[in-house]
Nucleic acid binder design. Structure first.
Lengths: 234, 234
DNA sequence: CAGTCGTCAAGAGCGGTGCTCTCGTTTTCT
DNA sequence: AGAAAACGAGAGCACCGCTCTTGACGACTG
C-alpha cells in the first residue's frame, strides 16, 4: 500500500488533512474572505509559520478547498443521477438540477467559492479543470444517452441556429457530449446557464423572497427546461 | 439650488466624490477585496484616518459603490431599451440582454460586486433595493407592454404550471410586471436566470473558451429565450 | 468684532492579516 | 554513526480596518 512509509509521512498526511478540515469549517462559517491561516494554526495549537510547511500559501490552501468543493458537488450530482431510472431522461435532468441546488443551499460558502466572484489575485491552477466539469460530464452523459435512445427530439418550433455556431458547439463539446447535434447543445447550454443562474441568485440572496418556498418554482423551471432541451422518456 | 451653502459643505461634497471615484478605480483594477481605505487615502494625499470623516467604515464605501453599480447597469439597460423600437418586443429583450452582458464585460469587478459572492460580513442595507431592480423594471415594462399589445403569446406546447405557483408569481411581481399572466412570468423568470447565469459564467471565467467568440452564441440564446417567453412583434 | 463651537486633518496606536527568515531540534537516509 | 532533510517555534516586515486624541481652522452668534 501507499500508506505511510515512514512515521513522519504519516503524521504529515494527518496534519495536512486536519488543516484542510479546519479550513473547510472556517470557510463554511466565515466565508472565503474570512479564511485565515493564523486562525487555522491557532485552532491547531501551532504557530502560524508552521502552516507554511504544509501549504506554501493561502492560495494553495484555497485551491485544495476548491478542488474538494468541485468533487463534492460532482459526487452529489453523480449520485442523484445514478439514483434515477436510466431511461427517464427528463427525470435524470431534474435530479441533476435538484442535486446542484440542494448542495449549493447546504454549502453556500463553498458554492460561492466555486461559482461566485473569483478571489482577487487568485488564479485557478490546472488541477482544478478536471473536477470542475464533473457535473457537466453527468449532463453530457444524460444528453448522449438520450440522443442514442432517440429520446432527444427538437421542440416544436425551434429557433434555428447558425450552422457555423452549431458546428463550433459540437466541436468544443465533442468529448463531454458525443453525438449530440449542435442545436441541441446550444439549447442545453442555455438550460445549464439557467440552472446555475437560478442557484446563484438563490444562494447569493438576489431572490428577495419572491416565493415563500423557492423549490416548487425551481422545479417548474427545471421541467420546462427539460422540455426545451428536448428530453423525453425513452 | 441645493448647491453648497457654505464653502465647507462644498469642499466636503467634492472630497466625498473624489474618494468614491478613486475607490471605483481601485475596485476596477484590484477587485472588491483589494479595495483599501488606506490606499485611497494615500492616493489622495490624506492620512488614512481622515477618510473616516466621510465614510464611517469600509462597508459604507462599498455600499455607495454597489448602489452606483446598480444604477450604472440600470442606466445602460434603460438606454438600450429606449433605443429599440417600442413595438419590437423580441428586439427590446435582446437589447436588454446585450446591454447587461456588455456592461458586465466592461466592468467585471463591479459586476462581481453586484452579482458575485456577497462580501463576507457585509449586509446590503435598504438603500440598495431600489437601484437593484432597475434592470428588472425594464424587463417588466417590456413584458407588460407586450401583454397589452397582445404580443405575449404562449409558446406551442407550454409546460403547464401549478396555478398556485402562477398565482404566487403574479402576486409577487404585480408591481414590476402588471398584467402579465403567471405562467408567462415563470417563463420570464427562467429566461432572466439564464441571462444572468450566462453573464456570470462568462465574467467569472467558467467558460473555458468554449467559443472563439461568445457573442454569437449568447445572441442565439437570447433569441431562443425571447421565443420561449412568448415575445413577438406587435 | 470677538468668542465659541463644530468640523477637520493628522498622528499614534491596537489587533489582525499573509508571508519570510533564522534557529535549534528531531527524524530519516546513507 | 554521521549527514541531510524536515520540522516547530519565534521574531519580524508590511499591510489592513478602525479608534482615540490633539491642535488648527472655519463658521455661526452675542
Amino acid at each position: 500500500m501507499t500508506a505511510s512509509r515512514t512515521a513522519r509521512e504519516r503524521v504529515r498526511a494527518e496534519l495536512t488533512r486536519e488543516i484542510v478540515e479546519i479550513a473547510r469549517r472556517q470557510l463554511a462559517t466565515e466565508g472565503a474572505g474570512g479564511l485565515s491561516l493564523r486562525a487555522v494554526a491557532r485552532e491547531m495549537g501551532m504557530v502560524s509559520s508552521a502552516i507554511y510547511r504544509y501549504f506554501p500559501s493561502r492560495d494553495d490552501l484555497l485551491t485544495t478547498l476548491i478542488i474538494d468543493g468541485y468533487n463534492a458537488l460532482g459526487e452529489a450530482v453523480e449520485r442523484a443521477d445514478a439514483a434515477a431510472p436510466g431511461g427517464d431522461f427528463p427525470g435524470r435532468w431534474a435530479a441533476l438540477c435538484h442535486a446542484v441546488r440542494d448542495w449549493a443551499l447546504a454549502h453556500p460558502h463553498e458554492y460561492a467559492l466555486l461559482y461566485g466572484s473569483p478571489v482577487p489575485g487568485y488564479q485557478a491552477p490546472q488541477d482544478t479543470i478536471a473536477p470542475r466539469v464533473r457535473d457537466l460530464r453527468v449532463f453530457g452523459a444524460i444528453l448522449s444517452a438520450a440522443q442514442r435512445a432517440g429520446a432527444l427530439v427538437p421542440p416544436a418550433a425551434p429557433v434555428e441556429a447558425d450552422p457555423a455556431l452549431a458546428g463550433e458547439a459540437e466541436a468544443s463539446l465533442a468529448e463531454l457530449m458525443p453525438g449530440v447535434p449542435g442545436d441541441a447543445l446550444l439549447r442545453a447550454l442555455s438550460a445549464w446557464t439557467a440552472l446555475y443562474g437560478w442557484v446563484s441568485f438563490e444562494v447569493f440572496g438576489q431572490f428577495k423572497g419572491a416565493f415563500e418556498d423557492n423549490r416548487p418554482a425551481f422545479d417548474h423551471m427545471v421541467r420546462a427546461l427539460g422540455a426545451t432541451i428536448g428530453l423525453t422518456r425513452a
